[in-house]
Design a protein around this nucleic acid. Structure first.
Length: 184
DNA sequence: GTAGGGATAATCT
DNA sequence: GATTATCCCTACG
């Protein structure tokens, strides 16, 4: 994995297996879509500097940053760069791997394509919890972890989704032709 | 299968 | 007081 900046991490996370293990149960999926944010980017939470919400973005690489959006949904990010640099990668979609049946119940659908094809869907399909906000994904006691998954794939860089500022930069990355991506 | 709009509350100004 | 790194349901055809 390449943590030197958020776009590098966003690309190198593609294909990795994201795993949530707790109570001897396992839910996981291959990361197929990500977006990068940093302090130079007016669409980023870190653009305005350190705040009560975004503090995990200013921690070291591998820190988990979870925020609530639209009063309803939660999204998962992984921090990149050096400490205090204010960068993170939004996990936008995963391809379900382990715990499909449980994910269907958590998500209230039997359509595998729609289990985790969106950032708030990823959060819910993996049964994540806001208590891991600020933890580091490489710590042994962190329920969330990463391991190698898919072989290297062709990556598409595209415009990000759902933002109103700085919309032209190609900071959304996804695996070419993967059907679990949120938006073609 | 797709376009449109409503839900809903923390965060920052 | 406005904005928001989203999702789902409804209507249409």
């Amino acid at each position: 994995m390449d943590f030197k900046d958020s776009s590098s991490l966003a690309k190198s996370l593609l294909g990795m297996e994201l795993i949530n293990e707790f109570n001897s149960k396992t839910l996981s999926g291959y990361i197929v879509e990500t977006e990068s944010y940093d302090m130079t980017d007016s669409a980023s939470h870190s653009y305005i500097g350190l705040t009560k919400r975004n503090w995990p973005m200013f921690e070291k690489a591998g820190t988990i940053y979870i925020y609530q959006i639209y009063g309803l949904y939660y999204c998962l990010n992984i921090v990149s760069g050096t400490k205090h640099s204010g960068q993170a990668v939004l996990i936008r979609a995963i391809q379900p791997v382990q715990g499909l049946e449980w994910m269907k119940i958590l998500r209230g659908t039997n359509d595998v394509l729609k289990l985790a094809n969106g950032p708030a869907k990823v959060f819910s399909a993996l049964n994540l919890d806001t208590s891991i906000n600020g933890q580091n994904i490489f710590e042994i006691n962190c329920p969330l972890s990463l391991k190698p998954g898919l072989a290297l794939q062709e990556i598409i860089a595209d415009k990000r989704v759902g933002i109103s500022k700085n919309t032209n930069e190609l900071r959304r990355f996804y695996i070419k032709d993967n059907i679990f991506v949120s938006k073609k």
